[in-house]
Amino acid sequence: MATASPGTCIIGRNIAVRGTISGEEDLIVEGRVEGSVSLAGHLTVAAEGVVQADLDVESVVVMGEVVGDITASTSVTIEPGARVTGNIRAPRVIIRDGAFFDGSVDMEFTVPDHLLKGRR
């Protein structure tokens, strides 16, 4: 998944960024990012990548570590070995076996109303 195609930015493993990253292309983080990421594209946090930032992206696959809230318009995938701490909001959230996640998940969905009645 960590393959770069033209139009993909890579933050290499010896790179650290602090601040806001925004863009309209895919981004791969192999190094370190602190601050926030706002991307109209796909974000990959590689196994060695560390992101301490709030993320607002189209989709994200985490193989490394993320500390921060994640908002994705399509999907969030947390791969085995990844560590994610923060709240996730996305229509699709996938947590694989062996991933660490601590936080909340908010996916828009409904259950029949009558099931919610009378809940404490």
Binding site: A2, A4, P6, I10, I11, I15, A47, E48, G81
Partner: peptide
């Protein structure tokens, strides 16, 4: 002398492509 902040658009040559990391299966 490790660079601290470099962010730029990269037209990555195939040889420099990010290594494919098959995440270790747990």
């Amino acid at each position: 002398d490790e660079p601290t902040v470099v962010v730029r658009r990269q037209d990555v040559a195939p040889a420099q492509k990010a290594p494919k990391k098959a995440p270790p299966k747990p």
